[in-house]
């Protein structure tokens, strides 16, 4: 590779955070996990770090832990790790579906959940389901660690809350309750190894007739992956009637600001946000009704 940089491969977390703390006037030092975006960006010279800090040899950062309250993924957990977990498909089908449709096998075996988030791309496939699952991210630096809602992490196109000296060490979300559902749909030009045209994730639970904790997240249709809060409010506390679902889908469409590009026009993306949001909400209602009837 022609791009030149220095590389640190620390053997533990303390050394990794110390290396990142050297960030300063001499040029940026950036963390690298799977590197499936970073190496491409380095080759294209769209990033030019002075040094990279690889977390490949930092122990204890890869794995998924599930207890009664939360699902926790270490900062180096790969996309394939999501697919191979025996329980995750039941708990978070939206996240597993997005992992299944993520790039190609070799990239899934290498790319990390945290890296997908930190790429900051509006087309990052794991982000809509993670937003719909109300995920939280944990950032560590040499001086402190902090957790914040994923929804607050993104500030603008490829603008995020991560400071240069911070490393994303964990991504977690509350374990959905039994009367809850979550789903994801990726619309792309091909089924495999394709960049998303529109990604929609939906999560909600029902109590009696009413929907609660409705979360709708939309990918590839704005500078950041969006929560469609207007659409969520249309359904929150209400019965999921066909009219309400249609109103929510329309509100989701009104929340987006897509662009024309080589993959699709802005108009087509808006239209598909409407259609796919309605479809996922309708399916969620049907699934919860079936499960409610079976209980």
């Amino acid at each position: 590779m022609y791009a030149e940089f220095d590389l640190h491969v620390p053997a533990d977390m303390d050394a990794a955070l110390a290396a990142l703390a050297e960030n300063g006037a001499r040029g940026p030092i950036m963390p690298i996990a799977g590197g499936t975006n970073m190496i491409v960006d380095l080759r294209a010279r769209s990033v030019s770090p002075r040094a990279l800090v690889s977390i490949a040899k930092v122990p204890g950062m890869r794995g998924i832990e599930i207890d009664d309250a939360r699902v926790r993924m270490g900062g180096r957990t790969t996309v394939s790790d999501l697919l191979r977990h025996p329980e995750l498909g039941q708990i978070a089908p939206s996240l597993v579906e997005s992992a299944r449709l993520f790039a190609g096998q070799m990239v899934r075996n290498t790319a990390t959940v945290a890296g997908n988030i930190c790429s900051g791309s509006p087309a990052a496939d794991l982000v809509p389901p993670l937003l719909a699952l109300d995920a939280e991210v944990t950032l560590a630096s040499r001086s402190a660690s902090r957790s914040l809602a994923l929804a607050d992490f993104f500030q603008g196109y490829k603008q995020m809350q991560r400071r240069p000296d911070e490393l994303m060490i964990e991504v977690s979300f509350p374990r959905p309750s039994a009367n809850a559902t979550n789903s994801f749909y990726k619309l792309a030009r091909r089924k495999g190894d394709a960049i998303t045209v529109v990604g929609v994730a939906v999560a909600m639970r029902v109590e009696g007739d009413a929907c609660h904790d409705v979360r709708i997240a939309l990918g590839s249709v704005a500078p950041v992956v969006l929560r469609a809060s207007g659409a969520e409010a249309t359904l929150e506390g209400q019965p999921a009637s066909a009219e309400r679902i249609e109103a929510a889908a329309r509100a989701a469409m009104e929340a987006v600001s897509p662009i024309d590009d080589i993959r699709a026009s802005a108009d087509y993306r808006s239209h598909c946000v409407h259609v796919l949001t309605r479809r996922l909400l309708t399916e969620a209602r049907a699934q919860l009704a079936r499960e409610g009837a079976g209980a």
């Binding site: 590389l7 690298i32 040899k57 290498t110």
Partner: peptide, 20 residues
């Protein structure tokens, strides 16, 4: 593609120092 500790990976996307 090669197997890295048993999993297929794209060798063009990995820095050699990180797979010591």
């Amino acid at each position: 593609a090669v197997l890295l500790d048993g999993e297929a990976v794209d060798s063009c996307l990995l820095l050699t120092w990180t797979v010591e």
